[in-house]
Design a protein around this nucleic acid. Structure first.
Lengths: 178, 178
DNA sequence: CGGCACATGTAAGTAGTTACATGATTGG
DNA sequence: CCAATCATGTAACTACTTACATGTGCCG
């Protein structure tokens, strides 16, 4: 039931509507961690309200309902963040492809790995300047901007995959020289 | 429908029964990439048989059915491996927790990050010698053993997360010195 | 005043989890 | 002979996706 915790976590930064939360999932949290569409979010917010973890703090124009965490919600978020189960849910198509690289013919595998390496290099070239710019603005001692840790994680992720793809290419290349 | 492709990928290494495949998902592929239990695997194998992507190659004792890829199955696997959609499915509780670190009180965040760093260090200490041993046995020019690329990926993953946790601690530490 | 972004919901179908159910072989 | 492991399946429930459905306020 991690959708609930994703919502609690997002609401911990401040009140938001179902619409706001839906847009948040279209960003990096949805691309790297957990995705949800509005058709799941609205019913879940209703259940969370029933469970007393969130409340409708404000009703705006166009029927907008702004949800805020309750103490119970914050408590549940903290419990979940600090208490990791043995086995956590993972479902990642990209990692699955990496696991199955060796099921391809060597030429296909090489082409795939080259594609991965190039893709990672592009994303790194895109992300690194963004992070650096954010850090330049950031005065030491001030609060770390939301998303900065996640952004750094994404960047290091790409760097790791990039390094892995190059390593794998070298490793496979040895089997079919020339 | 990635379960299907996970099964096709596993069967690409050789014929296996539903039981074998179930055990495979309890290993690293299930922990890092995609998990499935037997109650999903058996119906999916039945559908794949109907679709002509696998065949029951052999029936053994205790009703064991050994499945093998057909040409169609291998073709579909290759298509899926080489053709990446814009947005791939991701659902990862651990990464979600990383995204939400900043929703915790600074002391909680620090404790969590310290826990992550320690956990990663343990896994790295465990994996590195395994990989090195495998590489020592591996004669240059021979086929790379199955799982070696995935293992390296896992290792680099842990290293990346480890580095990220330390970086984040330093970053957060600046806001609450002492 | 029209188009777009805002805003919320439900319904139908698919995928995945947990629990139920059963039986065969093998090794000690 | 009995316990563990092998081996396959179904049922009930929950979660998720895709499509359907509707209406509002704001900006140009």
């Amino acid at each position: 039931m991690s959708l609930r915790h994703a919502l609690l976590g997002l609401l911990a930064h401040g009140p938001a509507s179902g619409y706001d939360l839906t847009r948040a999932f279209d960003g990096s949290i949805g691309r790297y961690a957990w995705h949800a569409g509005h058709s799941r979010i609205y019913p879940e917010l209703a259940k969370m309200t029933e469970a007393g973890q969130v409340v409708v703090e404000e009703t705006g124009p166009r029927g907008r309902k702004t949800y805020a965490l309750t103490d119970d919600g914050r408590l549940e978020l903290r419990r979940w963040m600090l208490h990791w189960p043995e086995q956590t849910t993972v479902r990642d198509e990209t990692v699955l492809r990496m696991f199955l690289v060796q099921s391809l013919e060597p030429e296909d595998a090489r082409r795939l790995l080259e594609g991965i390496a190039a893709h990672c290099a592009d994303r790194i070239a895109e992300l690194r300047p963004l992070m650096d710019a954010e850090d330049a603005e950031h005065s030491p001692g001030a609060q770390v901007p939301f998303g900065r840790l996640a952004g750094e994680y994404g960047l290091r992720q790409y760097e790791a995959v990039h390094g892995w793809a190059l390593w794998s290419l070298a490793r496979l290349g040895a089997t079919v020289p020339g």
